[in-house]
Write a protein that binds this DNA or RNA. Structure first.
Lengths: 356, 356
DNA sequence: CTATTATGCGTGTACGATAACGCATTCTAC
DNA sequence: GTAGAATGCGTTATCGTACACGCATAATAG
């Protein structure tokens, strides 16, 4: 591997000059710069990351600004886990990541939290801009690099990257799996699919449901779709609300689609019911530690996930790459859409719960 | 983070002595060693990987011993890709990985190839022990660390790790998906599922098929399973062999399960047939670059994969961790079992075809 | 009691990139 | 025409670890 010393020798100058040219720092002549850049390409130079890491001039610190962990049915807990893991990994390079939580339903809270993060003097920020306007307001005069996870603000061209998921497509996929599970030809005698629109109303929920509906409408016109909005994020209240929709006295749904991880609330409800209710196909989102049981016993038939932990972890790693290593990662990363079911659940555990 | 300098100061000695104690090298007194080790624990010392990597004392070299790329329907090409990628990643640390191929049906070839790999003076070997006895014979007197991918030899306790897949479970999962795709209640009027037992006979093929049969036998006794052995690994010959089993004049299978990546040969065959044949549910294995089309147009309905590229990449990275960084990774890693279908294919491309 | 070996430990340098510092030379201004 | 600024570039110390070298002192032999 070529080093800057090799380049300096080849160009007949000193390593200091090469360094200045590489980093656009200090003073150098145009001619020398051109020559150095040409030689760098010829020698296929790439900096030695160890040497670079060794000379730790600064202790970079990052901030992660995301909603409260319990919101969106515990989804943000998963994101927080990813941040914590990244934080540990980075700690060996003397880098720190601080987490800031805000109320995803309060623009004020978002603005406020984001401002304190900026004021903390960190060198880079990872943000979940679930309230785009609030975030854009504050970021207007920010001068440090930032990166979005979960939700994108495409016209925010100062962001260094977006890491997210294809929610619409996950809805489409859910539709496909749902239809596959309905073995018998569907008749039009009142049978229906229940779509549960979970508490909170965000972009992902909407587009997941839109994807699901789109698939169903294209591939199964005979089946009714009944969509209900649930307004509580508390498990017990969820149960009583859902009880109003799944009644012994009325026809049961022939399939249930829950657009986020509150599918586990539904599962704990279904589990307590009599045999009559069992076997209804259920599709939902996200692997929640400690709740694998519902997938194992097939109360939930399919879980889709685009690895929220990994999204967060990747985000922080990207900040590190950009700030510390001076790299230029992809500006948009869409996570793979994983299908998890009883039969492959155990092969995912380690990856998702331990190392990513 | 504490450095050896901190330790030396705390112990009132020089860094040279600390170094010798850490590495059990040279001479030092018992008393000093005890003191140093105590202080190391107190200060929670862990070596700076950058500093360690920077001082490239040796150019470690690794060997990867796997079957010929074209064998097992091109499966080993994927593994080779993973090795090449790992090799590139490692090259920035001045480490090299050399690939050795053998004929997976020849014990002699395996023994011979493995021996040359050992003789090459490499510092660690990654092996796909598809012929366990041959591998064990040669490894008996090997004194360098080795690691298995793809196939395990559990009683080989000298291996530092095994990276593999749960093939039985992937068969079970295939069974589930297959039954889900057969929408109509299955009658017993001659309908059957075609199981294609691809060329080559290895542990994974057998256990995938066993898993598939097991699921079908438990969950769908009414359906016949017709298993056919294909003996050629050439696409055109495959087509003519399969033509003997899927005939216009006879009843068509209501589903086809191909136990490895030769599912793409089947797909190219099915694609050329008349409309009558289309729509048969097909399940197979592995994402082959350039053949995504068959999943997109749903000639193949589901692809299962346990990321052969990633298995190989991980294997080499582990060798690096063990040999160069002195770490102790997991001794057994089972890769996640991914389900890929038209609707999530595009989210996987980047991960599988670029960065892993 | 000296000659030799063994033992414990300190010094110095290398690894590659970084970045502060400062020396020359050239350019500009009055 | 010379002071002062601007420009181009070389030198050097630093990060933490690895490891060769070699200096002392202690132990042992003759």
């Amino acid at each position: 591997m070529a080093t800057i010393k090799d380049i300096a020798e080849a160009a007949g100058i000193s390593i200091g000059t090469v360094d200045r040219i590489i980093h656009n720092r200090g003073r150098y002549s145009r001619a020398t710069a051109d020559k150095v850049r040409r030689i760098m390409k010829e020698l296929n130079y790439s900096p030695n990351i160890h040497a670079r890491g060794l000379k730790k001039t600064r202790n970079y610190s990052f901030a992660a600004v995301i909603p409260e962990e319990y919101q969106d049915s515990g989804y943000w807990k998963l994101v927080a886990d990813g941040i914590n893991r990244a934080s540990e990994e980075l700690s060996s390079f003397c880098k720190k990541a601080e987490m800031y939580h805000f109320d995803r339903y309060s623009s004020d809270s978002c603005v406020h939290t984001l401002k304190s993060a900026l004021d903390s003097g960190c060198d880079g920020i990872l943000i979940a801009p679930v309230i785009p306007e609030a975030v854009q307001d504050v970021l207007g005069d920010a001068d440090i690099p930032f990166l979005f996870i979960d939700t994108d603000i495409p016209d925010e061209n100062k962001r260094i990257a977006y890491i997210g998921q294809d929610s619409y497509q996950s809805g489409v996929l859910s539709g496909k799996l749902m239809l596959m599970m309905l073995k018998k030809e569907v008749t039009n005698n009142g049978e229906y699919i229940l779509i549960i629109d979970p508490p909170g109303s965000n972009y992902h929920l909407k587009s997941r449901i839109a994807g699901f509906r789109s698939y169903m409408e294209k591939n199964c016109t005979s089946l009714m779709l009944k969509q209900v909005k649930i307004d509580t994020d508390d498990e017990r209240l969820f149960h009583s609300e859902i009880a109003g929709h799944i009644k012994e006295t009325e026809q049961l749904p022939c399939g249930i689609y829950v657009a986020n991880s509150s599918v586990y609330y539904l599962a704990s409800y279904l589990e307590k019911l009599t045999e009559k209710y069992t076997g209804i196909p259920v599709i939902g989102y996200d692997l929640i530690p400690g709740k694998e049981r519902f997938v194992e016993n097939e109360t939930i038939n399919f879980i889709l996930t685009q690895q929220p932990e990994e999204q967060a972890r990747l985000g922080l790693m990207m900040l590190y790459d950009v700030l510390v290593l001076n790299r230029h990662p992809e500006s948009e990363v869409i996570m793979p859409l994983h299908i998890i079911t009883k039969e492959n659940l155990h092969t995912f555990r380690k990856e998702i719960f331990q190392t990513g």
